[in-house]
Amino acid sequence: MSDTLLTVRDLRVVYPGEQEAFVALRGVGFTLGRERLGIVGESGSGKSTAGRAIMGLLPRSARIEASELRLGTTDLLRLDERGFRRLRGKRVAMVLQDPRYALNPMMTVGRQIAETHRTHLRSTAAAARKAALAMLEAVRLHDPARVYDLYPHEVSGGMGQRAMIAMMLIADPEILIADEPTSALDATVQLQVLAILDELVRRRGMGLILISHNLHLVSGFCDRVLVMYAGRVVETCVASRLAEARHPYTRGLLASLPELGHRRPELPQLQRDPAWLADTAFP
């Protein structure tokens, strides 16, 4: 059903160190179609590194190796910085966690969105402004004309995150990577932002990678979930069946979550097994 938009095979990211190298990703592989793919894992598991590698946003010191890293017909491994600059925003876009830090504080929200349009579509200022206003409306901000002229510090977290989604979708990318897009938001606002993201991505037939530490969120929102541990994908499952996950790490994480209506005197603590590091069963 879904043609493949992105292919990642055996992706390794290594940071050379003075004494020993730090291996951030040790052979990650997955494909992305027109679907919502969730990547979950704890801090340090490499989920954000994977997202940044696709965007070409890793620091220069990082050594990136893969047997395949392809976006459509474009080989990302052979792309230079200029090539990535043409690609970012246009074909792959990224929504980051906190709009307060991710947006340019010196530029109004509207101008930042219009800038993306002008850069990638070579449009006139007037056309870009019109497109930005339409996009602000598409992310359901009331009174787009007013929001257009606000600076990032003048908008709430939920508004800022909608503005960032507007900015990322305005050039109509094939893939959107959302790295913890709602972790800085209140629970009720979180749902609104997810609903907007869901609707836009679905309507445009894009591929979405949702990176999150929140297992419940990912299992409710995505179609498929990759579970990462120590730089490797340890399990892939259908999102709605995350509760039936089999890997002891996934099971341990799920068990350690406090649950409403299921109060336990003590929460089971995750016992890490060194064998999980050696697990190479995943293709």
Binding site: R140, A187, T188, Q190, L191, D198, R202, R203, N214, D223
Partner: peptide, 24 residues
């Protein structure tokens, strides 16, 4: 809100299905 995002049954797997109801 704490129960998290829930889509309607059967809606998830077909990317071209328009949203049935306004989720907001």
């Amino acid at each position: 809100s704490n129960k998290g995002f829930r889509r309607e049954e059967g809606e998830g797997l077909c990317p071209s299905t328009p949203a049935k109801a306004d989720p907001l």
